[in-house]
Design a protein around this nucleic acid. Sequence first.
DNA 1: CTTGCTGCAAAAGTTTTGCACACGT
DNA 2: ACGTGTGCAAAACTTTTGCAGCAAG
Lengths: 164, 164
Amino acid sequence: MSTPAVTPNDRQLIMPLCAIFRRFLKRQGLKFTQERALILDAVLAKEGVFEADELLHEMREADHRVSKATIYRTLKHLLEAKIITEVLIDSKLSHYRLSFGRDPKGHLVCPETHEVIEFEVPELAELRDRICAEHGWDPVSFRFVIYGVSPEAKQRDEGDESTG
Amino acid sequence: MSTPAVTPNDRQLIMPLCAIFRRFLKRQGLKFTQERALILDAVLAKEGVFEADELLHEMREADHRVSKATIYRTLKHLLEAKIITEVLIDSKLSHYRLSFGRDPKGHLVCPETHEVIEFEVPELAELRDRICAEHGWDPVSFRFVIYGVSPEAKQRDEGDESTG
DNA sequence: CTTGCTGCAAAAGTTTTGCACACGT
DNA sequence: ACGTGTGCAAAACTTTTGCAGCAAG
């Protein structure tokens, strides 16, 4: 397990994000509670895409007991604060990713193995602006998800060739 | 209401799609029932993106009473038969579109007004293949959704400028 | 006739909400 | 102190499933 060059929970990020969230909350007349701090920490610790339930369980294991309801309520605030973004991967389950200070990314998803790879494509932002301009819309954000078969899934399929 | 040049329920499409679905079902040892025919008809009548509940209500109004369960079960078969595709617009609700014989499309979505515009971008298919090749994946499909503020929403906001 | 299909109602899964009490400012 | 937040459990919502009778091949 080698350390990636830049991780989402870089020291440089943690401080300002906490401050940014506090400021956001104050501006809305909301409070920066212990629970919200813990949830923000849990989010910062995630490297890629995550779901609400994941946070709940990870926090339980770390003995940071926060209720499901509070997690959902806080995720909404984090979305509004633009600290996280929703990533549309599954139409029955919400997925999120840390987005603060990062370019939007595309996602490569393997439905078989549930692998998710993030990738950056500068063209997408241009595309977004061009399409919006053509229709007279103001761009807000975008999602680009590619579904495919990962190398792992292909390998798995080889030993599984006998279908039916 | 002028007639669009090409509608999804073109005569040219209805026949083969029905035949294609029948063939698909037979190959799977499944049956082509009256209910499945009605649902396919309802799907063909939809111009753009639709949801399960929409079909249910529209069919009820047309006195084509089919149960929720059957609609969901049939949509799954239509997906497998590649007659429709899932469009990821909302993470809590499934959206579909007729996909048979059509290029994948991108979608411009306005969360405020719920408008959805389809657009074609040839570059997306190339992009999909390039990204997959870079990671050693086999491409299957993709979704490109842009969120933005539609002209209608902008107009609506003007009369709404006084934000508490 | 055999096998799969339908409708219903209940179950399952995620997300939201009402309420009484607790905490941040 | 005031106004929010929290946890809990129940509600809401979409989607799935078990079962008894029904229809397609």
